[in-house]
Design a binder for these strands. Sequence first.
DNA 1: TATGAATGAGTCTTCATTCAT
DNA 2: TATGAATGAAGACTCATTCAT
Lengths: 198, 198, 198, 198
Amino acid sequence: MEQNILETAEELFLDKGFAMTSTTEIARKVGCNQALVHYYFRTKEKLFETIFERLAHTMVSSILRDDDPTQPFEERLRLVIESHFDLLMKHPKLPFFFFNELTTNPKRLEALASKLKVIPSTVLQRFSSDLQAEIDRGRIRPIEPIMFLITVVSLNITPFLVKPFFQAFTEMDDKQYKAIMIERKKENVRIIMRSLVP
Amino acid sequence: MEQNILETAEELFLDKGFAMTSTTEIARKVGCNQALVHYYFRTKEKLFETIFERLAHTMVSSILRDDDPTQPFEERLRLVIESHFDLLMKHPKLPFFFFNELTTNPKRLEALASKLKVIPSTVLQRFSSDLQAEIDRGRIRPIEPIMFLITVVSLNITPFLVKPFFQAFTEMDDKQYKAIMIERKKENVRIIMRSLVP
Amino acid sequence: MEQNILETAEELFLDKGFAMTSTTEIARKVGCNQALVHYYFRTKEKLFETIFERLAHTMVSSILRDDDPTQPFEERLRLVIESHFDLLMKHPKLPFFFFNELTTNPKRLEALASKLKVIPSTVLQRFSSDLQAEIDRGRIRPIEPIMFLITVVSLNITPFLVKPFFQAFTEMDDKQYKAIMIERKKENVRIIMRSLVP
Amino acid sequence: MEQNILETAEELFLDKGFAMTSTTEIARKVGCNQALVHYYFRTKEKLFETIFERLAHTMVSSILRDDDPTQPFEERLRLVIESHFDLLMKHPKLPFFFFNELTTNPKRLEALASKLKVIPSTVLQRFSSDLQAEIDRGRIRPIEPIMFLITVVSLNITPFLVKPFFQAFTEMDDKQYKAIMIERKKENVRIIMRSLVP
DNA sequence: TATGAATGAGTCTTCATTCAT
DNA sequence: TATGAATGAAGACTCATTCAT
């Protein structure tokens, strides 16, 4: 039942955000007393944090997992981009979820910032130096790592953010959208690779 | 006073979204009675819709305004991309605002869909045919119009969506961020142009 | 209506204390919506504080009011004791109210302490020096001012604290109790005066 | 474990009263399951009553215990007063506890009244007749027994009721307060003896 | 004897909305 | 046009209590 609440809450938080999800609604959907939600998680906030951290972990870990330093740089890039995109295909609501919660609630942003600030600095540094090495070898054009990251994140995230609009305007069903997304993944890789040509 | 309410409400809705803005807060910030908000706009929903449509109009019109069919296609592209980006620099909260309200509340999305479905079809068709003409002339590589649009929207919108995170992690102030954004605009044009090379 | 709520709340707070009085009950007794209680006073705490301060002021001011320095010391003493006792006859629930709220909630005690610490120091000092003067003249036996104060407060307050018990055990009605209280006032003065004889 | 609950509950009830002590809190402090409290005592009310009666018995019995009819009246008086005061020094929270619970909850008062009404009548009668005998012998001035009792109770109880205030205002620690209390015991005896002088 | 799970009733509080003025 | 008063509904949360194990 605790698991049940957790899953239902995750679903609702992903769909409607923290503010617009009531514990009453969670309880109703689970089919239990509203007090039970508080019995297991004390407060709505704690319940949310549990879910939030799980999702944040899913997101971050999957991005870093697939990098293989023995591969050539271009190949590594392609792999990371694609695995990031694949993750989003599995959890298409994640981008909106994080934008929503972190933009709406500055405290959440601070908490995450202070938590993440330590961990990925080495990853970022390694990526930066690898990138610089490629630039020095004349393999790719000079570019700031941060600029490059923004490009990747932009191209990968937006298709999923935009999904509801897209479907509303084109009356496209999930299957059709998925087909487009598979195409989109290749397109993103292509755009990014082209953007790096010296 | 009506105008005053409208502006204050817009500011708050942009900052905190529909759900987390109360009419009490609007009234307090305006300096008027809470009932006055309802006197002018009947319901919080109506007030929101008024503002929402104004912002939607701002967004859409400014994108289309700067297109000059007498210019060469590449130049037109550059101009539309840049004017879109410029608009977002003036209203950096717009992207999040729309994502938030439209994703959270499906009714809003439907309303907007049925409203917009008619209007921009001609614009899109004209753009599609212009694009196809360029492709036929061998000036740009074959590409679906929709794919191209997603590229443009992705690259332009995300830097503003990402702003709060970026600032939280890098402790960058607004001025520094703006400097980066100016650089980013050029970068976006560059990436998009490269992506179109045959 | 605001006044109505205030009075009803005072009555209930005096009878049952802060913790055991619910805003629902106040509203029910007033005959209004429960939200109205919060409309006027925001929180139960604020409502309580309003009442608390009024009562504290009533208490303190009435004690100090009747002191006339031109009178002989013994006469002044008698007057202050009697006016204190008279006040309690008018507001017999005050002693319990203060003991209850201040003992139960340490924050309340601190707030009151920091508020009162400034004001009555002069009064206490004047009383101390007047007392010492009498002692020096050999009119009354040597005694610490604080010890004397405890005597007075003890004798005056307890008869009212004890009232509910007394009535429960003796099945005495309010009229009979009042008669005893009038007798008690004289008795208190008598005991105190005797206690001061050199 | 039952004993453990009982003791912990007593401590909490003395500190914060019935209303402000939750069974959850008792269980947490005991280190057991919340349901166990109900397993042993059925309801919070029953648990409270058990404790209440124990404390009431402690209070009453200790007062009566030390009376030795073979001693001279004045000596007996002094002894009872002092043993009462000593009991309060050991259990300084008792006075507030009884005032609080009995004033707040009339049912509790009735229950106690009907229970005590039978028992101490003989004690009171013996005391009354002893007192009257002294008055007849001209050893003490004419006084109603009840008036005399109020005097004793007032002087003995209030110093303990007043303790939190006193410490808040004077920033006195427990040790200093105890020193004053020892002085106070003598003072009370002195005042009471003087009050009886013919 | 002891516990984890579950619940119904109740608490304070906020909010959008209405209405008389 | 503008406001103060009033309300019903809903929200998060707490608590005493019960029950199966």
